[in-house]
Design a binder for these strands. Structure first.
Length: 113
DNA sequence: ACGCTGACTCCAC
DNA sequence: GGTGGAGCCAGCG
């Protein structure tokens, strides 16, 4: 688990995000022991294009802004996906961000060796 | 092997 | 309080 590549770790954590919930790059980065590599999280997700098992649309920046929406097929795709999950979106930002925010736990993620 | 890049974040003005 | 610049680190050319 720990020997997985940075990307693989990111993918693993992102896949843990429950339906109707969102998380942030920095939070995910921290959960995999690379708090300062928040940018890499987004970069990893960029490589996850095409992998439907990775809910990249549930990952937003720390403000709840849908900064990565431009990387989806359609500009509104990310927003639509979140809306379909019951996540309110206002002006490219998650309204009840604090309520839908999912906080990953390092123990939870890396429990398997 | 070196250097640029980036779906971020923080600090300063 | 909004805008801007610098730091961060792993992957890729």
């Amino acid at each position: 688990m720990n020997q997985m590549s940075f990307f693989d770790k990111v993918y693993h954590v992102v896949k843990q995000i429950p339906y109707g919930r969102v998380s942030t790059y920095g939070l995910i980065a921290k959960s995999i022991g690379a708090e300062r590599s928040a940018r890499m999280v987004g970069y990893a997700l960029n490589s996850s294009h095409g992998d439907i098992s990775i809910p990249a649309h549930r990952v937003v920046n720390r403000k709840g802004l849908l900064t990565g929406k431009i990387h989806f097929d359609g500009i509104n795709l990310m927003e639509q996906l979140l809306l379909s999950e019951g996540v309110e979106i206002k002006n490219n930002q998650v309204v009840n961000f604090k309520e839908v925010l999912w906080c990953p736990s390092p123990d939870l993620i890396l429990k398997e060796d």
